[in-house]
Amino acid sequence: MKNLTLSTALIFIASMAQAGQYCLLDGTEMFSCTFNGGPKGVELCDAIWEDGDMASYGFFKSDGEVEKEIVSEKVVLAYTPWNGMGSYVSESVTFSADGGYAYEVWSGGEQAADAELDGGINVMQNNEVIATLSCDAGSVTSDLGALIEMIDLAQVSP
């Protein structure tokens, strides 16, 4: 019985790193979605656990381990807010990494109470898109607008 309890606890702990759990530690999730039916995912967080005014990007591979993590000061993040025109609201935040790589996380959807959000990641190298990942239908949760406001505030008054 003791071994069963220990095994159950280890499975529970291992599952905590699964997609959808990256920001759960502090409730600062600003965007999340899954890929390939759920075993892979991405989350953006207001990284309040870090010193300074930081945001974090976490991409999870199928075994639940973090494949790519980027923690950046908000003042250096690029973003594209909704332009205020039309009924389709689209926003993005871009995290830069070594080697000229950047990860643009975006969400978009119609302005309707029952509208489902779309989202994804554009992977870029030297400002050219080299890969595009589309989020699973129905998996996008986004508050990129709030993150963009935080980034804008950080850039205005560093």
Rank of each mutant, 00 (worst) to 15 (best):
M1N: 01
K2A: 15
N3F: 09
T5G: 07
L10N: 10
I11L: 13
I11Q: 09
S15Q: 10
M16L: 13
A17Q: 15
Y22H: 10
G27V: 02
G27D: 05
T28A: 10
E29D: 10
E29W: 06
F31K: 02
C33E: 00
N36Y: 12
G41H: 12
D46V: 04
I48G: 10
E50R: 12
E50W: 02
G52D: 00
M54L: 07
A55K: 06
S56L: 14
S56T: 08
F59D: 03
F60K: 11
E65S: 15
E67M: 15
E67K: 13
K74Y: 04
K74V: 00
V75E: 09
T80E: 14
W82Q: 02
G84E: 02
M85S: 15
M85Y: 10
M85T: 15
G86N: 09
S87L: 05
V89N: 11
S90K: 13
S96Q: 13
A97V: 06
A97T: 04
D98A: 13
G100Q: 06
Y101I: 00
Y103A: 06
V105G: 00
V105F: 06
W106Y: 08
G109D: 00
G109C: 05
A115I: 01
E116G: 00
G120D: 08
I121V: 13
I121G: 01
N122V: 12
V123C: 00
N126T: 03
E128R: 04
V129P: 05
I130E: 07
A131P: 01
T132A: 08
T132Y: 11
T132H: 10
L133V: 09
S134H: 13
C135S: 12
D136E: 04
A137Q: 03
G138R: 08
S139A: 02
S142G: 08
S142C: 05
D143T: 09
I148A: 00
M150V: 08
L153H: 05
A154K: 03
P158Q: 03
